[in-house]
Amino acid sequence: MEAIHHPVWKVAGIYGALKSSIYRVQTDENLIFGLVERWSCETNSFMFPWGEATVSLEDMMILGGISVLGDSVKSPLQSPELVEMEEYLENARREFIGLKTTNHSRWLNNFMNSDKDYEHEAFLSLWLSRFVFPCKIGAPVFSIAISLARVMRLALSPDVLASIYRDLSSLKQAMIMASSEVPGSNGDRIDIHKLSLWSPLFFVQVWAWERMVSLQPERAQNYNIVSGVRIGQWHNVKQTGVINVRTFIDSSGEFFFVEVIRLGCGRLVDSQVTRINKSGQ
C-alpha cells in the first residue's frame, strides 16, 4: 500500500502517522498508574509536586506524526460518489456481523491483495480503527478514511488527544473508587484492569519517557530520527530492573524537557534542558 499510495499520504498529512504504526511500545503499567495518580480531571493536566504539565497537540504531532492541521474529522462527505463509497464499506462490514473471526482480522483478509473496489479506503479504515481511534471498524472511521484517500487533510490530533484526556480521567476516577473501596454500579468492587479504554495511552508513556530523563529506558538501536517519527526510538524497549516510579516522577522537576523544536531541515531535536524550580516556574 505504501508503494502505491505514499504520495497521497504525504499530501494528506498522514504519512508519518502511518509509519509510526509499525512501532510497538511495551506497556509500563507502573508508569501509567504513577502518572494517573497525578492527573487532574478538571484541568486535563498532571499536577506534579514541582509544577503542572500535560500531553499537548505538539506532542502528538512530533511523537506520532499525527496531524494538527486540516479540517475537522467530523466534516461530512460532500459528493454522492463519496457517500456511495461509505455505503460500500458499511455493506462490507455488515457481512461480517455474526462471524466468529475478529473484526479487524476478517476485514484485513477480505481486502488485502484482493483488487477489490476501495481497497485503499478499506486499508485506511483498518488503520484508523486500530491505531488512531481504537474501536471496531464501522461508520465513524469510514468517512475519515474516504476523505484522507481523496487527499483531504484532516486534523486528527485534537480528537486523539481528547480521547486520551477522557481515558486518563476515567482511569483516575476508577483508581479513586478502587482505593476508597466504593463498589461499582452493580455492587462489585472496581477492577481498573477491566476498564474499557479506547485511546492510544502509549503516547502518555512515551511522553513521560521523553520529558523525564530519569525514567527513560535504553532507546532502540539503529534509530534515525530523520527518517521516522520520534516514537520509533522507543520501539520494543522496556524498563529493566525495579524502580520506584512515584519517587522518580516526583523528583523529575529539576531537569524536565519542556519543548521539542523542529529545525528548518525537518529534523527533530531536543531543545536545551530547562531547570524548573520547586514553585514550577
Rank of each mutant, 00 (worst) to 15 (best):
M1A: 14
M1E: 15
I4E: 03
H5M: 10
H6A: 15
P7V: 10
K10F: 08
A12Y: 12
G13C: 04
G16E: 00
L18E: 02
S20R: 11
R24G: 01
G34Y: 14
V36I: 14
V36E: 02
R38M: 14
R38I: 07
R38L: 15
R38E: 12
T43F: 12
M47A: 04
M47W: 00
F48Y: 13
P49R: 05
W50T: 07
T54W: 01
E58I: 03
L63F: 11
G64V: 03
L69Q: 10
V73N: 06
V73K: 01
S75M: 11
P76S: 15
L77H: 11
Q78D: 12
E81L: 11
E84K: 13
Y88G: 03
E90K: 08
E90W: 11
A92F: 10
R93C: 08
F96D: 13
F96E: 10
I97E: 11
L99P: 00
L99K: 12
L99W: 06
T101K: 14
N110T: 14
F111Q: 12
M112P: 00
M112W: 01
S114Q: 09
D115T: 07
D115C: 11
K116L: 15
E121N: 10
F123D: 10
L126G: 10
R130H: 14
V132F: 09
A139Q: 12
A139E: 11
P140T: 05
V141F: 04
F142C: 00
S143C: 01
A145P: 04
R150C: 07
V151W: 05
R153N: 05
L154T: 09
L156T: 02
S157F: 06
R166K: 08
L168R: 00
L168V: 01
S170P: 01
S170I: 10
A178T: 01
S180R: 15
S180D: 12
S180Y: 05
S180C: 08
V182M: 06
N186M: 07
G187Q: 06
I190T: 05
L195S: 03
S196K: 12
S199M: 13
S199Y: 09
L201A: 06
Q205P: 09
A208D: 06
W209N: 07
R211M: 07
M212L: 15
S214N: 04
R219I: 09
R219N: 06
Y223T: 01
I225E: 06
V226Q: 08
S227P: 00
V229G: 04
V229M: 15
R230D: 02
V237K: 02
I243P: 07
N244T: 05
R246L: 13
T247K: 15
I249S: 03
S251E: 13
V258E: 13
E259W: 08
E259S: 14
R262I: 03
G266S: 01
L268I: 12
L268G: 00
L268E: 00
D270M: 06
Q272K: 15
R275G: 02
I276Q: 08
N277C: 09
S279M: 11
G280M: 06
Q281I: 08
